[in-house]
Write a protein that binds this DNA or RNA. Structure first.
Lengths: 198, 198
DNA sequence: TCGAACTTTCAGAAATCTCTGAATGTTGTG
DNA sequence: CACAACATTCAGAGATTTCTGAAAGTTCGA
């Protein structure tokens, strides 16, 4: 919006049309597309992509200009990214500069774990909780055992099977996200283990 | 819509308000909520939930009534579910009945693998392909090696690290979906393997 | 305490996604 | 071939999500 915006910090001497900037734009488009296909808001993915690929803290103004989105959007979006643990607030080192800068985790493995954990916690765990209520009769109601219809039993059995699947998925996810960098080795072991039986 | 719809096949003698039906409704709501959080259309998830929990082939009319959605929606939705391999078309056994019935896979593990594979193929693989174009210089351009800037190298390195992550994810997904029912055992082994290092 | 410089909020606008239903297509029977 | 009985398609309606930007809030130096 305003013209009087000299870049006081962290803006590399990049012209608007150098190769790296174009490649960054391609990456931002890529990441935002990936995000929308998996239920992440476009602007959230865009801001994250920008911070990740820039590799240095940026201020709101820069993100607005670069992505062509509003101040409000940047603010809301950063709030979410900070909540998810993907982005950190960084105080400006310059005295008398009240702007808040933000930087994204640069280690792709940590990025992966963080996303996995955050999504599981937010989009999976609460719903698994709710799965129990989809049974005909809540978990332990033995008084009724004798007169449960076949249809009823089949229904509850399916819900239980799904629940077991969720528990497995939970375990797999935990195993993966707890493994630290050993994951590459682990994945090879896993591949061998699962490859053999067939 | 029309009133003249006697149920000629596969409709169990279920009143509108028996316990099982209510539990089915809860499950349909659950599954549709789960779906929307992961980028699946509400009605697609609903139709799939209904077919899965019903456990028997249903015709379009029944789905319309049960879910309160239009004929067109049911048709479009079933087309997608069949493409994804989650639902099968079933010919009516009754002579002179031209309706098509549909049934969903009942084995939850197969369901899991199918969803995993389908989503990977549709939402992941094509984009991983595209990731390569996010580099500054395409994979092999050795002529330029000498004069690549530090900034440029860092960018391409990040893209490569992300690519490696995608390859890992691909491997994990393949390992899981190829493992057949052995997955439960495998998950325990995996947990032990990954749990130890820490 | 004031005011400059920034951030956050949120009602309404805009964009996007999803559904409907009439028109059209398909299939099998007589 | 004509018709009945169903399925499919798709333009436009409707619902939902997302974004904007002005107003309110916050923070800090003087």
């Amino acid at each position: 919006m305003s013209i009087a915006a000299k870049p006081p910090l962290a803006v590399p001497a990049a012209t608007k049309h150098d190769e790296v900037r174009l490649a960054q734009d391609r990456f931002i488009a890529f990441w935002s597309e990936m995000g929308t296909r998996w239920g992440v808001q476009r602007s959230v993915a865009e801001v994250h992509a920008l911070l990740f690929i820039a590799g240095e803290p940026l201020c709101a103004e820069e993100m607005m200009e670069r992505l062509g989105i509003s101040r409000g959007s940047v603010s809301t979006t950063l709030k979410q990214l900070v909540e998810w643990g993907l982005v950190q607030r960084v105080k400006s080192t310059t005295k008398n500069d009240r702007r808040e800068f933000h930087s994204a985790e640069q280690d792709v493995w940590k990025l992966f774990y963080t996303i996995l954990r955050a999504r599981k916690r937010r989009e999976f765990d609460p719903l698994v909780e709710e799965l129990g209520t989809c049974r005909v009769s809540p978990k332990g109601s033995p008084a009724k055992v004798g007169r449960r219809s076949e249809r009823e039993k089949l229904h509850d059995q399916k819900i239980e099977e799904l629940h077991a699947l969720c528990v497995f998925f939970d375990g797999l996810s935990n195993a993966v996200s707890k493994s630290g960098k050993g994951i590459e080795r682990a994945s090879k072991v896993l591949a061998r283990l699962l490859g053999a039986p067939r």
